[in-house]
Write a protein that binds this DNA or RNA. Structure first.
Length: 266
DNA sequence: GAATATGTTTCGAG
DNA sequence: ACTCGAAACATATT
């Protein structure tokens, strides 16, 4: 699930649930999501700490406290939920942070089915390196910065947009959506883009990201490409009704419209 | 059982 | 020096 808009909604969950509150207790139900630390050390370090305003960069969430800062990455199946501390945990709740006052304690839960990513201390060398290598955040990237990162990259447009070190925050769904709305074929090369196409790409990227952030995820609207992803045997393009094409591009399932997004000329 | 999945890193090849 | 594709991570669903 998680791409930039999802992680942005987790940031809000974290802020509403925990900001300004004290962590009373940390329960690690599956230490498989911990990286570079142990369950014992994490709960010792965080107990009694106050949660401060969280930050997001790309798909990373930074949890600031008056003690150590944490980095969360949600992989493909992770999420953050706020629950009543008395509610029984979900099967995939890997870490429970109990917060705030004793009368009505809340619980922030890191839930993740596949455990592809997880939690790091912000000063962990591996995590710090990964965060350091991120490109500009896709939600706020300027036209000039987008042009600059694309100019520094060759190969397929889709693989560039998907690369977090080029631009941080886009995943497979968002990339397909943006390329379709900008009417650019995913296999176009970054170098082939004209001035007008780069302008359209930036405009579309902002528009798609803003409405997705508002919705908390990439909305599966009928008028968007995302709404047609799951149709068996290929769905019609919401623009022109021709059958959408599917093929792997940059190693990922890619959906595009052969009419609205013309094949790059070789 | 097989294929697939909204993510990312690593490694070998071109 | 870059870029690409495949494999690996762990688990559920179709």
């Amino acid at each position: 699930m998680p791409e930039l808009p999802d992680v942005e909604s987790f940031r809000k969950v974290l802020a509403d649930c925990a900001q300004g509150r004290t962590i009373r207790r940390v329960e690690i139900r599956d230490s498989g999501v911990l990286h570079g630390t142990s369950a014992r050390r994490l709960s010792r370090d965080l107990a009694g700490r106050e949660v401060q305003e969280p930050e997001r960069h790309g798909k990373w969430l930074v949890v600031h406290t008056d003690g150590p800062a944490l980095l969360l990455h949600f992989g493909m199946t992770g999420r953050l939920v706020c629950a009543d501390a008395d509610d029984p945990p979900h099967r995939h709740d890997r870490i429970l942070f109990t917060l705030g006052d004793m009368r009505r304690p809340r619980q922030l839960r890191y839930r993740d089915q596949r455990k592809l990513q997880g939690l790091w201390y912000a000063d962990d060398p591996e995590a710090a390196r990964r965060l350091d290598e991120q490109g500009p955040d896709a939600l706020t990237v300027s036209r000039a910065d987008l042009d600059a990162v694309l100019a520094a990259r060759r190969g397929h447009l889709k693989s560039a947009l998907l690369d977090q070190s080029v631009l941080a925050g886009l995943g497979n769904l968002l990339t397909d959506e943006i390329l379709w709305q900008a009417r650019l074929h995913p296999a176009r090369t970054t170098r082939s883009l004209t001035e007008d196409e780069r302008a359209a790409l930036h405009r579309t990227l902002r528009r798609v990201l803003r409405s997705s952030v508002r919705a908390g995820h990439v909305p599966p609207r009928d008028t968007w490409l995302t709404g047609r992803r799951d149709a068996p045997g290929g769905a019609p393009c919401p623009h022109c009704d021709i059958r959408l094409s599917t093929a792997p591009v940059a190693g990922r399932t890619t959906l595009w419209c052969p009419r609205c997004q013309p094949e790059p000329s070789p």
